[in-house]
Design a protein around this nucleic acid. Structure first.
Lengths: 212, 212
DNA sequence: TATGCTATTGGCCTTTGGTCCAATAACCGG
DNA sequence: CCGGTTATTGGACCAAAGGCCAATAGCATA
């Protein structure tokens, strides 16, 4: 449970070979990371808990009985699990490497590999994870605010960030300008923005599109 | 000079083996693309003309006398040349594949490869090229408008898209509000925008940051 | 020196945006 | 039927943004 000293990330390791798990686990722990091992992709999927406190990444073998590394990676993508993947392989093929990298793998290590290469990949993965995680957290926050808007308010916001005047918005929505002002004010309040510029950026980040 | 019929893209092919050039060239032309061959990376760099009319991509061998495929790819990146790269290799290594993909290669084909794999890769590359090119064209357009702004106008724009009021901007710049209004009006004119929301999006796309 | 561009400011007036207080109406779950 | 939420509108008022016309000053280049 307790890692060595400085808690700077969790590394999930998945390989059907117990000795490999043991070896990599040792390397990872010595570098100050927490290591969690699994002997199959299925086991990992059942037990893995999403990253809450510290960033994490996954070191996985390409070929395993049952679900392989590529399948696992695809599964993570499908379930929206944001966790960088580092591949290992004894007899990896170029096509497998291409596919893994296309899907966003951090790197693809051929066994046997240098310990430093692994640690460097882990460092890169955790760094990437952290920045993506930060961005993701922000987007989730913004979307939460948007969910607190009523349909009418969302509609008005869409027009506002498209640069329409209150008068024009009112015309399009078939209501009076005064009503638009009210909705607009509520939008700014709920979105916690002080200006249209800010609001525009928030919506862009949350992929909330302007109305045509 | 004249390609077969439908001009839907140019494929630059670089390989030191003339027979390979000939073979691939034939496949590419039969698929309706224009093929341009070079026997070395150096030769390509000297003679290549940037894409003006039709989209283009590059099919390059990994290992060649002199500058290799990876070196060529790096060179293109360094010079800001936006051209998708497809790698070919007879005896490619995993590390080379990883590096190529990390730098944005479309794919990495092991010789001998299926003709359809190559054509699919080319199709993907040209599609990518086109969308990137469109986006890039837009950004260049916006930056051109920004270049037409005077320093003072740029400064005001930075404050405007950060959501500041004219009064606040005036205070920060040590000038009168009236002057800010004038600059602001010129900014909206030169940037061809009708609203702060629009302006904010243009600046975001052109990576022109709001003032702190 | 003259001309042109830029920055700066003033006044005046109109349009827009935003706030406060208040009120009506529809709808929904208890 | 009542209380809570949402949508809607009104009036009064103030602040902010923009347009139009005009003017001064510094600077660089022809």
């Amino acid at each position: 449970m307790m890692s060595s000293s400085n808690e700077c990330g969790t590394v999930f390791i998945v390989d059907d070979d117990a000795s490999v798990l043991k070896g990599i686990s040792r390397i990872v722990r010595l570098a100050g990371y927490e290591a969690v091992t699994h002997t199959s992709a299925e086991e990992f999927l059942h037990q893995a808990k999403p990253s809450s406190p510290s960033p994490c990444c996954l070191v996985v073998d390409l070929t395993m009985p049952g679900m392989g590394g590529l399948d696992l990676q695809q599964r993570l993508i499908d379930t929206g699990t944001n966790c960088p993947v580092i591949f290992m392989s004894g007899n990896g093929s170029i096509p497998a490497t291409v596919q893994a990298m296309k899907r966003g793998a951090v790197t693809f290590l051929s066994k046997p590999f240098d310990h430093d290469d692994l640690l460097q990949a882990i460092s890169e993965a955790l760094g990437k994870q952290m920045s993506v995680e930060n961005q993701s957290r922000r987007v989730i926050e913004i979307r939460q605010r948007i969910r607190n808007l009523t349909d009418r308010e969302k509609e008005v916001m869409g027009w506002v960030i498209s640069g329409m005047l209150n008068k024009q918005i009112a015309a399009r929505m078939g209501i009076v300008e005064k009503t638009v002002k009210v909705h607009r004010a509520r939008v700014m309040g709920k979105m916690q923005t002080q200006s249209v510029a800010e609001l525009t950026r928030l919506c862009a980040d949350a992929e909330f599109p302007p109305n045509r």
